[in-house]
Computed example of a mutant assay.
Amino acid sequence: MANRILVLSLVAFSCALATAFEPSPLQDFCVADPTSSARVNGLACMDSKLVKADHFSFSGLHMPGNTSNPLGSKVTPVTVAQVPGLNTLGISMVRIDYAPWGVIPPHIHPRATEILTVLEGSLNVGFVTSNPDNRLISKVLQKGDTFVFPVGLVHFQSNVGYGAAVSVSALSSQNPGVITVANAVFGSNPPIASDVLSKAFQIDKNVVDYLQVTF
Rank of each mutant, 00 (worst) to 15 (best):
A164M: 09
L197I: 06
Q27A: 12
A200T: 12
H62Y: 07
V118P: 02
V166G: 00
S37K: 15
V94H: 01
A99K: 05
S57A: 14
V31H: 11
L61Y: 04
F215M: 08
C45E: 04
P176C: 12
N66Q: 01
L17Q: 13
P150T: 01
F147P: 01
D133W: 01
T129K: 06
I203D: 04
G121Q: 05
D54K: 11
N41Q: 13
V148M: 11
L43Y: 05
M1L: 11
N87G: 02
M1S: 14
P190N: 08
A164I: 04
P84C: 04
P34R: 08
D133R: 10
Q202R: 13
Q157D: 06
N206P: 01
V148L: 09
N175C: 00
K205E: 15
A20K: 14
V168S: 09
S14W: 10
N183M: 06
T129L: 10
Y98L: 03
Q202K: 14
A184L: 06
M93C: 10
P150Y: 03
P25G: 09
S130A: 15
I5R: 15
D47W: 09
Y98R: 08
I108R: 03
A2P: 02
D145F: 07
D195P: 01
M46W: 07
A20Y: 13
L89W: 07
G42W: 01
R39Q: 12
F147Q: 03
A193N: 11
Q174G: 07
N131A: 12
I179G: 00
T76W: 01
S138Q: 15
V51N: 13
H107E: 04
V118W: 05
G161I: 05
A112I: 06
A165R: 04
A170W: 02
F21V: 14
P106Y: 07
T214M: 08
D33A: 13
Q82W: 05
G152N: 04
